[in-house]
Design a binder for these strands. Structure first.
Length: 830
DNA sequence: AGCACGCCGACT
DNA sequence: GTCGGCGTGCTC
């Protein structure tokens, strides 16, 4: 029943991508006066559903009126030019198809939230309201407040109304027609403004300023202000200095009287003004440093360029400390000289550190940094900077693959094996490395993958000739690779009478290092004090009531914490089941190691670095600074200490509990363990001193550890690839996991089972594994089951198969029985 | 995903 | 009688 007559030939329709997890596109109508302003890739504001206003992205402009519904009008067009590059809509769609999610979800993750305006409900007095007798006393009082304030947001309401149920309160007012609700849309991004101050021009002259000072004879405080200003801005030497002024803060920081300052402003002797500035400090061109490559580095750089002639992607396999960064810098410079844009991806935790400072020194403010610890405004600034070609080079984390490069020529992915390149939650569960390779392929850019311990996938592709392969097997300068030793912890424990987790070998080594005043890193990939508490009487174990895991004991705040759902509870004094006081902590986390070290080496300066000590924005940087300046003897930490850190004075690395990594029940455990152990070993010894690494283990004869000791990546790879082929794991197949989640265990299990059956009809049973319980079976009271799909390469039409899987999930969700079950597909699980 | 609508139990 | 619990359905 739609009146199509209202549509004329000129009526424009837009397919808009909205940040919602719904597969279909949404078609809106363009009000005629905006016809000339629509363009693909610009943002629009639209209302969606009953009460929502959102930012969407124009994906298509057409004349086809939708048949089954009447299109709504768009409210507003936000941009005069596209805010994404011309390839990005394609990339979004590719990601949605490949990673089994919706374009809206991709867009939601791709755009920095500063570019997604949101609506905020505000309330206002209804001007036609004339029945105050209906109101309660509180309501009447509130109306007076509201009258004074024009309109208020929900957040502001809280200030006036305190702890009451605001929704209910407002609802009542609306029902009495006393107030009206409306949606206000606001752009979130705001440029940074600096409050500055300068002397009015009329006082700039030599004579004028002297007269001014004289005239303030009686107001000494004000005179002081002027004198301080002149001292900071000696404009009598150079007149232009006054027009540049000084920030208000800098002036007030001198300790001058704020009230006198204000008087001067009021008297129009000083004038305040605002300056829009970049959030990123500027570096002068003359401060930039050049680089000098070693002969080896130069050769490697040339070799990479050569390989990139033949293939789009090249893998740089360079041992830790070989100076890969210098090679990258060289290649980035060359690419920039060719006039193309460059993107460099780094894993999250490596980015805050030394490498950015190093790059900044070379590239100055032509380089943008895109990081999740940056504020929204900062991220929008980088985004816009890329659009305007202010940054021709950006270094960033995973999500930097979404930046709107129009002329991308080179992508460098450092530490390409890092699993943090894969997004885990929420959708899109994408791999930034693979996405970058796909994007590069589309736009004709080149990709360099770098790692000391390449992922099995990448190395396989290199060996197969799909990627170019370049080796850099010497450390930079005269540096030698560290000497890695295994310490049989079981034997050592037996020999030592005292039961300690520090074997005698490691203890002696630390002691020696302290005497030599050299630094030590202790690595244990587990935070907290101990992974669980155990009652010696009744064998009770503290576990989370909503997840099937034990609670980790945190000593510092004396809490038991669930590392899955975040639940916290006080540590019991006595056993909750039998009442005995014999509760023991079992296992070792970083906190306990720190504690033990303080007892063993009371004079040592010990610092711990893990999620718990680096929560605040600058904590990580601070710790690194402390270590660099030599203010720390021993650094204890989780995987954070194993990545990208570069300390000259660290000559010893100790590894606890290597066994747990090796024996993790997962086909990637070997790869992960080898990478982690090799990476952390690489932290030991730089410059002339060879470092020493001690790995404590119960299985010193394990072949993987042997490879780590020998720094034998190839041996490890050869062994691993045989296993992968034998069991048809990646890179010989693609793995897709579909997880089901539900509060009802049986229903979750049944849903996974039915899905497995459905998938098997077309894909055959051999390709389907499960359903199986997830390793952590229950999280936040939801039961989790997994179905694994193994798709061998080159035999199946992958796109069609993915579509089939998607359809099966859609059909199951449509089934009443499984409606409330959550299905979560994850493609290329890491 | 959100959000409104709507149909059943425990309270002023 | 109503408040509010969360199952269900829809979003251009």
């Amino acid at each position: 029943m739609h009146d199509h007559s209202v549509y004329t030939e000129e009526t424009l329709f837009l397919d808009v991508i909205l940040p919602v997890p719904i597969p279909q596109a949404f078609t809106y109508r363009v009000p005629r006066d905006l016809n000339d302003f629509v363009l693909i890739g610009a943002r629009v504001i639209v209302s969606f559903g009953k009460n929502r206003v959102m930012t969407g992205l124009i994906a298509r402009i057409h004349h086809n009126a939708p048949e089954n519904y009447k299109a709504k009008y768009i409210d507003e067009i936000l941009d005069e030019s596209p805010i994404i590059s011309s390839h990005q809509l394609w990339l979004f769609q590719w990601m949605a198809d490949y990673y089994l999610c919706n374009v809206g979800e991709v867009m939601n993750i791709a755009l920095p939230s500063g570019l997604k305006v949101s609506s905020q409900s505000r309330i206002q007095i209804n001007p036609t309201f004339d029945s105050p007798e209906l109101l309660s006393i509180e309501e009447a009082e509130f109306l007076i407040t509201l009258e004074k304030n024009d309109s208020l947001s929900y957040d502001e309401l809280k200030k006036f109304l305190g702890d009451i149920d605001i929704a209910k309160f407002v609802k009542s007012l609306i029902s009495k027609h006393a107030v009206i609700l409306y949606d206000a849309v606001k752009e979130k991004y705001s440029p940074k403004k600096l409050k500055k101050v300068r002397l009015k021009r009329v006082y700039e002259g030599q004579e004028e300023i002297l007269n001014l000072i004289e005239s303030l004879e009686k107001s000494t405080k004000q005179q002081e202000v002027i004198m301080s200003y002149i001292q900071l801005i000696p404009f009598h030497e150079l007149q232009e200095k006054n027009s540049q002024g000084i920030t208000k803060k800098d002036l007030l920081d001198l300790g001058i009287s704020p009230s006198s300052y204000k008087t001067l402003v009021d008297k129009e002797i000083l004038e305040e003004y605002e300056l829009t500035v970049s959030r990123f400090g500027d570096i002068g061109k003359d401060e930039l440093e050049g680089i000098r490559l070693s002969t080896v580095q130069e050769r490697v750089s040339a070799e990479l360029l050569e390989k990139l002639e033949e293939s789009n992607t090249a893998l740089l396999h360079g041992v830790t400390g070989s100076g890969k960064t210098e090679v990258y810098i060289d290649l980035i410079k060359k690419a920039l000289e060719n006039g193309v844009q460059v993107l460099m991806l780094l894993p999250e935790i490596a980015l805050t550190t030394q490498i950015v400072n190093r790059l900044r020194k070379v590239f100055g403010d032509a380089m943008g940094v895109y990081h999740s610890k940056f504020s929204d405004n900062e991220r929008v600034e980088v985004w816009k900077g890329v659009l305007e070609d202010k940054f021709s080079f950006v270094v960033g984390v995973r999500s930097a693959v979404f930046l709107p490069f129009e002329n991308l020529g080179l992508i460098i992915i450092d530490e390409e094996h890092e699993s943090s390149y894969k997004q885990y939650d929420p959708a899109p569960r994408y791999h930034a490395r693979d996405t970058a390779i796909m994007l590069a392929h589309k736009v004709g850019a080149k990709v360099i993958l770098g790692s000391a311990t390449p992922s099995i996938e990448s190395y396989y592709h290199a060996k197969e000739g799909k990627y170019g392969l370049v080796n850099l097997s010497e450390r930079f300068g005269d540096a030698q690779l560290p000497k890695v030793e295994l310490a049989n912890i079981r034997e050592e424990k037996a020999k030592q009478k005292i039961k300690s987790d520090f074997g005698i070998t490691l203890q002696d080594a630390i002691k020696g290092n302290l005497e030599k005043q050299e630094q030590t890193i202790i690595f244990q990939n587990r935070r907290g004090y101990s992974p669980y508490l155990n009652c010696e009487e009744c064998n009770w174990i503290g576990s989370c009531h909503q997840c099937s895991v034990s609670l980790t004991y945190h000593y510092k705040d004396h809490m038991l914490i669930c590392h899955y759902c975040g639940h916290k509870e006080r540590t019991p004094q006595v056993c909750p089941t039998c009442g005995s006081g014999k509760i023991k902590s079992v296992g070792i986390g970083t906190e306990k190691i720190e504690d033990d070290l303080m007892v063993l080496f009371p004079e040592a300066r010990i610092v711990r670095m893990d999620l718990d000590t680096t929560r605040s924005k600058n904590a990580y940087q601070q710790i690194i600074g402390e270590v660099e300046s030599g203010g720390v003897d021993i650094l204890v930490g989780t995987q954070m200490v194993s990545k990208g850190l570069d300390f000259d004075k660290v000559s010893l690395v100790g590894v606890f509990d290597a066994d747990r990594m090796i024996y993790f029940p997962d086909f990637r455990s070997g790869e992960r363990a080898f990478q982690m152990l090799t990476q952390v070993s690489g932290r030991a010894g730089r410059k002339e001193k060879p470092g020493r690494v001690i790995i404590q283990t119960n299985s010193p004869t394990h072949p993987l550890l042997k490879m780590v000791v020998e720094n034998n990546y190839h041996g490890f790879y050869d062994k691993e690839i045989i296993e992968r082929e034998k069991y048809n794991y990646p890179p010989f197949s693609r793995l897709i996991r579909v997880t089901t989640k539900h509060f009802d265990k049986a229903l979750s299990h049944a849903a996974a089972g039915t899905l497995a059956q459905r998938l098997a009809t077309k894909l055959s049973k051999e390709r389907i594994l499960g359903p199986e319980k997830a390793i952590v079976e229950r999280v936040r009271n939801q039961y989790i089951f997994e179905v694994w799909i193994k798709l061998e390469k080159n035999k199946l039409n992958i796109a069609a198969t993915k579509a089939f899987i998607r359809d099966q999930i859609t059909e199951m969700t449509a089934d009443k029985k499984y409606k409330s079950v959550r299905f979560v597909p994850d493609v290329d699980v890491v």
